[in-house]
Amino acid sequence: MTGGGSGYHGRVMHRRRFLALAGAAGAAGAAGLAGTVASRAEAAENPTIVAARGPGDIDQASFPQRGHHRVIWSVAVTDPVAAITFDDGPDPAYTPRILEALDAAGVHATFFMMGHCVQRWPDLAREVVARGHEIANHTWTHLNLSFESPERTEEEMVRGTQLIEDTLGVRCRYFRPPRGQLTGSTIRYAADLGQDTVIWSVTRGVHGTGTPEAVASHVRRFLGPGDVLILHDGVGRAYFDPDAPFAQVNRDRREVEVRALPQMLEEAADRGLILGTVSDVLAVEAPGRPQPEPEP
């Protein structure tokens, strides 16, 4: 049992210890480390990397004035809160079971919905809202935006936002690009839409289909305060090519994640880790660089 079982004690120390354990586990060759987690674990083990990431000579004032809209992988927090997020849905095959599990655990999550799915299953999407979860933008049709023009990118992002906001009557505060593919255009249009771009710091971790136990175990070991966990309640591009081999892989992987969810929620609660929406985590963000004055 690495990292599990202990409650949330000292804020900084606990996080360091947790990350160090994660790093040790990574070095020991545990399967399926997500790149972001591995690099964070390295950072925790190697203080010079951390030191090198202190305030540098970055000239902040010469960047575009887009307020505090930013790209978030994880959040420096003052309380033991982590974000749990679901991408690509809603989908009747997965979302209802996820809602049940979340309800049973008393947890609210952020759902990065595809405009396409909201249009296709509007009542299900409304049900997600009705249960108090947070809704965010995951584009219209889940194209890999690395290969799309700025115009197409904008259309995907704006249309996704519109379908969600018009159908559900909520405002999208966050955006997540499909596959986490950050491009210049996605960052720019997200800021224009007033959405923070939220990537993730912890994934299911297990390559291939895996088992619910393996996925839950990975999350137990790597998910700590301030992390953003990505899971799925839909299949992304597979909606447009349901017979492709990757579509079946996607469906199998989603099924495993859904089955792993109750155990993940229970283990997080046992460790004293509070799961919530992206907004919940940002609400306990440690003070960072505040806003400059508007330029006259």
């Binding site: 887009r66 505090h68 809209h69 800021a191 007033g194 330029e295 006259p296």
Partner: peptide
């Protein structure tokens, strides 16, 4: 006016 031309 320009003070409101920012993020949103």
């Amino acid at each position: 006016l320009a003070m409101h031309a920012g993020p949103r």
